[in-house]
C-alpha cells in the first residue's frame, strides 16, 4: 500500500454515509464526509488533501452531475467515482463523459469500492507526481539557464 488516500464521500443518505465512513476508515482510507453538493465543495476548499471523491448521482439540491462539473472545474486533477442506483446508470455514464473516473452501482461490494478508490488514487497521485516532476524540471532548467 502506498501512502494513505484521502477520500471524500458525498451522499444525502446520512446512515449510508456513516456506515460507509466506518467501513472505509477501517480499510485504511481517510474519509471526509459530506451530505450534499454544496457541503462537499465547501469542505474541499478547506481541505486540499482529498484525492478521490465518491459522489452519489441522485441528491436533493445540487445533484451529482452539477457537483461533478463544479469539482472538475476547480480541481481538475481530483478523481470522482460516481455512485448510482440502477435508474440513473445513464446519468453516471454521462458523468464519465464529463470526466468522472468510473461509476459503481449501489449497493456495491465494499472490496470492489476500495479497489476502485485505490485505482483512482493511484492515477491521481501519478498525475500529481508528473506535475511535480515537471515543475522540478522547469525549476532546474530555469536555474541552468539563469
Amino acid at each position: 500500500m502506498m501512502t494513505t488516500s484521502y477520500v471524500m464521500l458525498v451522499d444525502d443518505e446520512v446512515p449510508f454515509v456513516e456506515t460507509m465512513t466506518k467501513r472505509l476508515d477501517r480499510r485504511g482510507l481517510k474519509i471526509i464526509s459530506a451530505s450534499g453538493g454544496e457541503e462537499a465543495l465547501k469542505k474541499l476548499k478547506e481541505n486540499d488533501t482529498v484525492d478521490v471523491i465518491i459522489l452519489d448521482v441522485k441528491m436533493p439540491g445540487m445533484d451529482g452531475i452539477e457537483t461533478l462539473q463544479e469539482i472538475k472545474k476547480i480541481y481538475p486533477l481530483k478523481e470522482v467515482i460516481m455512485l448510482t442506483g440502477h435508474a440513473t446508470v445513464e446519468t453516471a455514464i454521462e458523468g464519465m463523459k464529463l470526466g468522472a473516473f468510473d461509476y459503481l452501482m449501489k449497493p456495491c461490494d465494499i472490496d470492489v469500492l476500495v479497489a476502485k478508490v485505490d485505482e483512482a488514487a493511484k492515477k491521481k497521485k501519478s498525475h500529481d507526481a508528473k506535475i511535480e516532476q515537471a515543475r522540478i524540471d522547469k525549476l532546474v532548467l530555469r536555474r541552468g539557464y539563469d
Binding site: 446512515p15 456506515t19 441522485k58 442506483g85
Partner: peptide, 24 residues
C-alpha cells in the same frame, strides 16, 4: 415501478452496508 425501485434501493444499500460493517 421506477419510483418504488429507487426508494427501496437506498434502504437496501444501507442495510447491506450495515451488515458489512458488522462483518468488519
Amino acid at each position: 415501478a421506477a419510483g418504488i425501485a429507487h426508494e427501496i434501493n437506498n434502504p437496501v444499500a444501507i442495510m447491506v452496508e450495515e451488515a458489512g460493517w458488522i462483518g468488519d
